[in-house]
Nucleic acid binder design. Structure first.
Lengths: 110, 110
DNA sequence: GAAACATTGACATGTCTGTGTTAAGGTTGT
DNA sequence: ACAACCTTAACACAGACATGTCAATGTTTC
């Protein structure tokens, strides 16, 4: 029986059982299941849960923020688009001129 | 007359004037001001607004997501913490717990 | 000086997030 | 077999997010 059931995991991590199920829905911390369908939290998941609590309390990170960061990490197109947007938005970006120039040409063409 | 006023900027970009003010509150697109306090949108801001629209429609990126991405880019501590957390929950993590677990999974799958 | 714009501030609303609770039923351990 | 767990599903609700709209007031333009 390696793995804590949802109530035990809740008690040792500080989350509520409800939130553990919610976190699974959000695909942020997904435990494996016993043959009868019980959630089983192993060391890995317990560590994820504890560090997630710290992330929230120390940095005010929302769960949606983390989900987005995960998406950024996996979707390379999205990451490029976001990075480009942020670069254009940062005053100190070195490639800003180039970026603006291309958009300007598109503008004039329209 | 360098810079469009909020209504004109709204019309050429496709946003509403209300949303332009909201985006300024969110610090995503911040125009400069005329001496009397009118918002003045230059090329840079107009480009930001247009590409922001594309980001949303093409990738379903929310404004809060973008704000968080901007925060990630500037707050190095936060970025490290988030990256660490994602590494611990990703399949490709180098963490020993994860490594151990993946070894088991590979064995079981074989 | 009036029309047409701008400003801030507030109220309204629909949707989503985070969380608790409760109901109807399956599983486990003593 | 009975208590104490677990499961999913649903209702509830406060707070935030994304928008619209309206009011009171200042600015630009003709």
């Amino acid at each position: 029986m390696d793995g804590l059931t949802v109530g035990a995991a809740a008690e040792t991590t500080g989350w509520s059982a409800r939130m553990l199920r919610y976190l699974e829905d959000a695909r942020l911390v997904v435990p494996r299941r016993s043959p009868s369908g019980y959630r089983l939290y192993g060391l890995r998941e317990l560590n994820q849960l504890r560090s997630l609590l710290r992330l929230r309390s120390r940095f005010g990170v929302e769960l949606t923020d983390l989900a987005f960061a995960a998406r950024l990490r996996h979707d390379h197109d999205l990451r490029g688009a976001v990075d480009t947007w942020l670069a254009g938005s940062d005053a100190g970006a070195a490639d800003w001129v180039d970026w603006e120039q291309r958009k300007h040409e598109r503008l004039l063409a329209a």
